[in-house]
Write a protein that binds this DNA or RNA. Structure first.
Length: 244
DNA sequence: GGGAATGTTCACTA
DNA sequence: CTAGTGAACATTCC
């Protein structure tokens, strides 16, 4: 269940563990867990789709991929790939990938590119888009986690629809005003996504993702892989303009 | 019950 | 060496 908002949603559920002592870490994942032993969990952060557990001189990034999940004080039948144990609580991750990072999150991640952070920097991202990704299709670039951390397939599909831009549009051909509007749509939709998670209504509320016809003009949606990214895209040919 | 899916990495091939 | 592909992932949801 993981696009950026889902990860932030999980983080918000874990706030009460901030400042608590982790007695040990477990799980079949290969990451070395020997340093996680009776140490204080200083903070819980996110960067895009990564959930970050911050300790004094290092932090652990947990990535749920497509199939991952998290349970607090509950277990599945299968073994957890990673788990943090507290005095009487435990956080269990299933089918999750973990990575050990030295230092602080800001040493490794540029928060200016995280669509869910207050630090998200529209000017920085716009500049990167126009200077380093000018020749690419917008639908492809949106999935680039270095520039749009937290954007997943649902967000890119819905945001492009809201912005009325066809995913196969070439970045440099899209008017700057349109790009700026798209950035706003991404941030707005990510926030809406987060709210929808509270009632589990993301799919129902989506305008075209998972649908067959455009809600506006009732024409059939195009559903296929476009560009280099191997994921299905949904497009309304009438509502979304192709810039080439 | 089968296929597809909110994602990424890694092995393999050309 | 690079770029493209396909599988894998203690899955889950129609």
């Amino acid at each position: 269940m993981p696009e950026g908002p889902s990860i932030l949603f999980l983080k918000n559920k874990l706030q009460r563990y901030k400042g608590k002592t982790v007695s040990e870490a477990s799980g079949y994942g290969e990451m070395d867990k020997s340093q996680i032993n009776n140490i204080k969990l200083l903070d819980i952060e996110t960067y895009g789709k990564n959930l970050l557990f911050v300790f004094k001189d290092f932090f652990v990034g947990v990535h749920l991929g497509l199939f991952g999940s998290m349970l607090v004080n509950k277990r599945k039948k299968v073994n957890a790939s990673f788990a943090l144990h507290f005095a009487s609580d435990e956080i269990n991750f299933y089918v999750a990938k973990t990575k050990f990072y030295e230092g602080k999150p800001t040493d490794h991640f540029n928060f200016k590119t995280d669509i869910l952070k207050p630090e998200f920097d529209e000017d920085f991202v716009l500049n990167e888009l126009q200077n380093k990704h000018a020749e690419e299709m917008i639908g492809d670039v949106l999935m680039d986690q270095h520039l749009f951390a937290g954007v997943g397939n649902i967000i890119r599909i819905e945001a492009l629809y809201h912005a009325k831009i066809h995913p196969e549009s070439i970045v440099k051909a899209i008017p700057e005003k349109k790009l700026i509007f798209l950035l706003k749509m991404i941030v707005d939709y990510a926030e809406e996504f987060l709210n929808l998670l509270k009632t589990d209504g993301v799919k129902e509320a989506a305008l075209i993702y998972g649908k067959k016809i455009c809600p506006k003009d009732k024409t059939e949606l195009i559903i296929e892989e476009m560009g280099k990214v191997k994921r299905k895209t949904y497009v309304c040919k009438k509502c979304q303009k192709l810039f080439t």
